[in-house]
Every structure is written in C-alpha cells, then in structure tokens.
Write a protein that binds this DNA or RNA. Sequence first.
DNA 1: TCCATAGTTCTGAATATATGAACTATTGAA
DNA 2: TTCAATAGTTCATATATTCAGAACTATGGA
Lengths: 120, 120
Amino acid sequence: MRPLTHPHVDDITVEGIMHALSDPVRVAIFADIAGSACSQNCSNYLTVREKEIPKSTLSQHFKALREAGLIRAERQGVEMHNTSRCGEIDTRFPGLIAAIVNAHKVQSSGKKKPAKRPKK
Amino acid sequence: MRPLTHPHVDDITVEGIMHALSDPVRVAIFADIAGSACSQNCSNYLTVREKEIPKSTLSQHFKALREAGLIRAERQGVEMHNTSRCGEIDTRFPGLIAAIVNAHKVQSSGKKKPAKRPKK
DNA sequence: TCCATAGTTCTGAATATATGAACTATTGAA
DNA sequence: TTCAATAGTTCATATATTCAGAACTATGGA
C-alpha cells in the first residue's frame, strides 16, 4: 500500500477541482468534510456509507478528492482522518470553494418540489 | 437534425456545471463566451479552432456546455451564435460562475513561472 | 440547381469509472 | 506472539464516456 499522495497547492488546477466536484457523491463527501463556511472539519465515511455505496467505490472517490487537492488524508490508527484544504486553495483561487459549496447548499435545499405552486 | 435543447434555469445543476467546466477546452470556450466580468458576449469557434481540435469534438463540447445550461445557442444564418447564460445562472447560484471564471483567469495568468521572485 | 460553409450525427476505438474479490495495515485481545 | 476484527486499498474486469474521422444536414448565395 503506497503512501497517500497529496499535490502541492501550486499544482492544484481549476479543471481538477471541477472534475472532482462534478460527481454528486464526491460533492456530498466534500461538502460534508468542508462543512459550513468551509472550516477545517474532519469526517469519516459514515454519512455517505448509509447510501449503500461500495467501499471500493468510496475509496476511489476519496482518492479523486485527494488527488485534486481538495482534501488531506492522514491515517489515525485504523481509520482515515480527512480534512479539507479550503484554506490553501483559497489563497490560490479566492472564493472558488466557497461559491461551489454554497451553490451545492442552494441546490440541495431547493430539492423538495414546491407542492403545486403555493398560489401566491 | 433535431432542434438544440436548452435546460430550464431551474433544471441546471451544480454537478452539471462542474462537469462541463472540468475540461480545459470547454473552460476555454466558456471563458471566451462569457468574457470578462461574465457579460453577455457572443463568440464563434475561431479562437479554439486554431488549437487544431476536430470539429466533431468541438461540436460535442458545445453540446456539453449547452446541456449543462451554461450557454445558449441560436442559429444565425449559416453559423451558430452562442451567448452565456451567466445572468440566469447567477440568480440560482450567486457568484458561482464568476468564481470559476476568475479562478480560470488566475490559473492561466500564473502559468508563466515568476522569474525567481521579483524581489519585493 | 449546385456549391460552399458551418455545424451535427454516426460509429468504432481509446479512455475512464464502478464494483466485487482479494489484499494490506492497524489495533486489541487471547 | 498469533489471531481476529476493522478500515481501507488495490486488482481485474464489466460498463460507460469521450474522441475523432466519415457521412450527413441546414442555410445562403451564384
């Protein structure tokens, strides 16, 4: 098992970030890790595992987020500890992550379809 | 040739936008169409065609941008007229497009490696 | 009507993604 | 130590997406 790779902040690309966040599952994972206001929260697989995603697939998703430079993973005992790299990314691409996470929130909060137009 | 499809603004998704803009060519096309400050500029294939991308591939890229809701295409005589849908998208996801286009600018302007730090 | 231009659609090859099965690393007991 | 449990990675391969050449379509002249 080779050690986890994390790109240097200067090697993080917009395309890489976009690609990593173009998958609903990864956006959900990342939004969860990044938390509100993009603070450095930690997370584990629990929230997403409930959605019946195979662990090999999840592992790949985490790898994608890691290699895009969006999260940092460190082994803590038997499990993984993931933190967002929002701070670093923000120095290079100011406001980008915040805008994406916010847009994701807007979208998921608007999901419940408005029961037949609430008639003014 | 079926008529071009454009999603309703309410059907535009963050994932769709992310995916469409996860490709360097499409980001370039879109940045070109959206122009500075995300104004409603038009564009044609010229700028990108120079980069020797086959027209079938370009057509697919434009289709991807269209179906993600990022641009609107209208036939004008023999050629296509593309405009950005920034305004519409901004009502749903405020600041998102601006942040992405800006990040793209930051990245492309930072490509020329800074000649050994300009010393203060 | 015929041609040129600008783009779309079709099709097969190349590439990427998803997932079950097998493997690795760490911890904690026996 | 050795063994088992937990958490995750890697491998192999089935499936899906993307790329690009060839053929096709729509429009506007000559």
